[in-house]
Write a protein that binds this DNA or RNA. Structure first.
Lengths: 170, 170
DNA sequence: GGCGATTATTTTAGACTTAAAATAATTCAC
DNA sequence: GTGAATTATTTTAAGTCTAAAATAATCGCC
C-alpha cells in the first residue's frame, strides 16, 4: 500500500495546491451577494414601513427571545458585533424608550437590557411583517431545497468557525 | 378535475399561509451567520497582514478585473453599495496612491477609476493570500457540497432579486 | 484580606454606510 | 435649438461599526 490517500485538513490542502481557489472564492461571493440582496430589501422595508433601522430591529429580536433580558456582552456575542457597537445601539433604543437598562444582581459591572412594553409591542408587529418578507424573498426555494441549503450552510458555518478558532489555539 | 394544485408564486403563498415562517427565517439567519464569520476572519487577516480594510480590498478587486478601469457608478453597482460610499472609498484609496481617477471620454459627468501600478501590485499580493484564506475557511466542504451549495445559493439569489425587482414593476 | 488576572462596559478615533438633497452634464422630445 | 427628464457624482447628516484604550468591578489564589 504505497499510494493511499492520506486525509488532509483544510490548511494542508491549501498549502499543497497553490492554485487560485476560484471555486471557493465564487462560493464566498455568492454567500455575500445573497446576504446583501436580502438585507437590502429588509432594510428598505423596515425603514419605509416602520421607520426603524435594521441593526435596531436585530437587537430587539435578540431581546424578544429573552423575556428576562440579557447583558450587553451577551447581546454583542449573539449579534456578532463589538461591545462598543452594542453600547451605542442600546443608547439610541433606550432614548426611544424601546429598551431599558437595569443593573444586574450580584454583578455591579454588568447591566441587563430588556424590551419595554412599548418596545415589545412594536417589535412584534415588525417581526410579523419581517417573517412574511423573508418567506416572500426566499419563496422560490422548495422545502427540500431550503433544508438542503440549511444543512450545507451549517457545514460552511462549522468550517468557518473552526478556521477562526485555530488562531487562539497554538 | 376539481382539486388540481394551482402553482402559486411566492407572494400568494405567503398571503395564504399566515404562519410564522420559522424555516425561512432560520435559513436567512444562517446565511447571515456564514457571511459574518467569513467576513470577520478575512477582515482581521487583511488588517493584520496587509494593514488594509475589507471595503478597500473589495473595491480594488473590482478594479483588478477591469484593466481599463470603470466609473464610480459601475463600481457602486458591482459592490452593491451606494454612490456616496464609493466616492469616499475612492477618495481614501486615491490618497494612498492605490487608485487614480481620470475623466471619462465623451462624458464630462463621469470619471473612470483604475488601479495604479502600485495598487495593482499591492492587490495581487493580497488576492493571493485571500484565496488561500477562503479555501481554508471553507475547507471542510467537499467539492460536491461546494457546487451544490453554489447552485442553491444561486437560486436563493434569483429569488431575492425577483422580490426586490417587484417594487419598480407595478 | 490583598493583589494580579480576568471580565463587563464605555469611550475614543476613525472608517464605513445609508438616504436624501444638491450639482453638473447629458439626452430626448419637440 | 430649448427645456424637461435623466444620469453621474458629490455632499450632507445621521447612524453603524471596528479596534484599541480606559474604567470599573469581580474572581482566584495565596
Amino acid at each position: 500500500m504505497d499510494d493511499v490517500t492520506i486525509p488532509l485538513d483544510a490548511e494542508t490542502k491549501v498549502a499543497e495546491r497553490p492554485d487560485d481557489h476560484k471555486t471557493e472564492l465564487r462560493l464566498w461571493l455568492r454567500i455575500f451577494t445573497c446576504k446583501m440582496l436580502i438585507e437590502g430589501e429588509v432594510r428598505r422595508r423596515l425603514r419605509e414601513q416602520f421607520d426603524v433601522t435594521l441593526p435596531r430591529f436585530d437587537l430587539m429580536a435578540q431581546l424578544d427571545r429573552a423575556p428576562n433580558g440579557m447583558t450587553l456582552g451577551e447581546l454583542s456575542q449573539r449579534m456578532m458585533v463589538t461591545n462598543g457597537n452594542v453600547t451605542g445601539l442600546v443608547d439610541r433604543l433606550a432614548a426611544q424608550k424601546l429598551v431599558a437598562r437595569r443593573p444586574a444582581p450580584h454583578d455591579r459591572r454588568a447591566q441587563i437590557v430588556s424590551l419595554t412594553a412599548e418596545g415589545r409591542k412594536a417589535f412584534r408587529a415588525m417581526a410579523r411583517a419581517n417573517g412574511n418578507w423573508i418567506a416572500e424573498i426566499l419563496g422560490d426555494l422548495s422545502p427540500g431545497e431550503t433544508s438542503e441549503l440549511m444543512r450545507l450552510l451549517d457545514k460552511a458555518k462549522a468550517s468557518a468557525r473552526k478556521a477562526s478558532a485555530k488562531r487562539g489555539t497554538s
